[in-house]
Amino acid sequence: MTNLFLLQLLNGVQLGILLFLIAAGLTLVFGIMDFVNLAHGVIYMVGAYLLVSFARMTGGYWTGLALTLPTVLILGLALELLVFRHLYDRSHLDQVLATFGLVMVVTEAVQIIWGAAPLTAAMPEALSGSIPLIGPLRYPVFRLAIIAAGLLTGLGLWYIITRTRIGMRLRAGATHRGIVSALGVDIGKLFSLIFAFGAMLAGFAGALVAPILSVDPGMGESVLILAFVVIVIGGIGSIKGAFAGALLVGIVDTLGRSFGPIVLRAVLEPAAAGQAGRVLAPMLVYILMAMVLAVRPAGLFGAKA
């Protein structure tokens, strides 16, 4: 039982790390530029589709990844130039409307280009297979790699934001936009950079999951809502909050799914426990968010109320 618990904890961490990769870009754009971007999920999806195509074209996962990242970056820059740039000074509602439209456009375009059937990417040879963990329990190497990649990304982000010049400008730009641009920093350029970088993070997450999840036209939207839940729990704009929120959501969701029914069985009859477990498990993440917001209306690490 303890072994299983540890394993499920690891699973929860892995799901959380994945959510963090998606949520990090979202919370940057949201927090620094005050921009609600519903299209973030479809960029994650495009990243996965590009990886499938590039990996097939070049015959390898790593070369595919090497081509996917700059392509998503360019896509992010193009979207920023064509659409997002014109929406920075608009209300949240206008941003919701435009990015909702963009979600429809990209989802349909993906279906036209790649078809509606789910696709898959081959797993890199070096990371396939599983390693023994405890007893009969094994853990896939690739998932460990995802955890590692997520931790490295988080560390890198933290370093950039707190320890570098560009990070300093970012933090300053978020709070005192006018003063920073008066000091001669090109805010426009800075914002396009953040946006493209955020898009690349989402695309990276998509490319990471392509070998373990089905790549299909619905994958962006299911993740978008969860990513929003994560950044709201963590507090908008806070990378630290996104990290904590992502881990919390990943662990609560995973443990709730596997141990919720067991716990309920201790207090209820088996049939009632099964029914209650089935009702509660999918709601758990939302209950968590409602509870966090009821106590801390600006999330765990949020500054502005």
Partner: peptide
């Protein structure tokens, strides 16, 4: 959906 989305983006802009 492609065209509807484009119209939404266009109208907002």
């Amino acid at each position: 959906q492609l065209w509807f989305g484009l119209i939404l983006v266009g109208v907002t802009l």
